[in-house]
């Protein structure tokens, strides 16, 4: 592994919610074209850290981030960085499917439109189709692109949200427990999709389910009480963890 495949590098990251110190001294290197899973018990800070990577925490008044997070060696908390531009590059999929109350087409076209990715209507049509295909939902919705996105089933909604996120051509895709609101069949579809997305993106996924982490990721990070306890190859973490806390968690004694 060479340094030029490192997409995201975090050094000494601290996050505070008001007086609450939520993330402590996190250092991590996330590789390009890899699926990295963040696991850990509830409230361990894995989602908080994920939201630091595209500065979603900026939208919370009381939240404060210190330390250094670099994407392609650019400090994303630099004053010159516009979070809006950053988020176009670092897409995000949320825990609960959150399609906008618009048509399926407009949901996917929303990002390209605000970022000005299409010059013509036909360009936009292409982008939408490509995104929906990559979201593995094109065949299901191609005949009803004008139908409201909220009318789809839960699994379809989440794949629509993934399509919406990839439509802006991000380089990193953050996924915050994307399957927690889905049934097993929809989960399987989304997991399959994540594996395909790895071809083009660096994917970071927060998950509650260790099985899911083992199934979809190459690297795994274990968070506990705001600390990054252990980070390494997924196989290694699940078979021979170094830290006793990691072992307790994957054997079901904590969390």
């Amino acid at each position: 592994m060479t340094t030029d495949t490192i997409k995201i590098a975090a050094r000494d990251v601290q996050v505070y919610y008001g007086d609450n110190h939520a993330i402590k001294d996190v250092n991590v290197d996330i590789e390009d074209k890899t699926v990295t899973a963040f696991i850990g018990p509830s409230g361990c800070g894995k989602s908080t850290f994920l939201r630091c990577i595209n500065r979603m925490n900026d939208t919370i008044d009381v939240c404060r981030v210190t330390g250094d997070i670099r994407i392609d060696d650019v400090d994303i908390y630099d004053r010159a960085i516009d979070p809006v531009q950053l988020r176009a590059k670092v897409g995000m999929v949320f825990q609960k499917p959150n399609p906008f109350p618009k048509s399926i087409y407009d949901n996917v076209a929303y990002g390209p439109r605000i970022h000005g990715l299409a010059r013509k209507k036909s360009d936009l049509d292409d982008i939408v189709e490509r995104a929906l295909r990559r979201g593995a939902i094109w065949d299901e919705v191609k005949d009803r692109l004008d139908a409201p996105g909220t009318g789809l089933s839960g699994g379809q909604q989440q794949r629509l949200c993934i399509a919406r996120a990839v439509a802006t051509e991000p380089e990193v895709l953050l996924m915050d427990e994307p399957c927690s609101a889905l049934d097993p069949i929809a989960t399987a579809q989304v997991e399959e999709l994540i594996d395909e997305l790895r071809q083009n993106y660096s994917v970071v996924i927060v998950t509650h389910s260790m099985q899911q982490a083992a199934r979809v990721s190459q690297k795994t990070a274990f968070f506990h009480l705001g600390h990054l306890v252990e980070f390494g190859e997924t196989d290694k973490i699940f078979t021979s963890p170094e830290d006793p806390r990691t072992e307790s968690y994957i054997t079901g004694r904590i969390g």
Partner: peptide
């Protein structure tokens, strides 16, 4: 719901774009 705003922010929309194109239509 906040999730709609998050979805829009997550795609790189500015606050005013989020308000005008997602929150207000909703």
């Amino acid at each position: 719901p906040q999730s709609l705003r998050d979805g829009s922010f997550g795609l790189g929309a500015t606050h005013s774009e989020t308000v005008r194109q997602v929150v207000l239509p909703a």
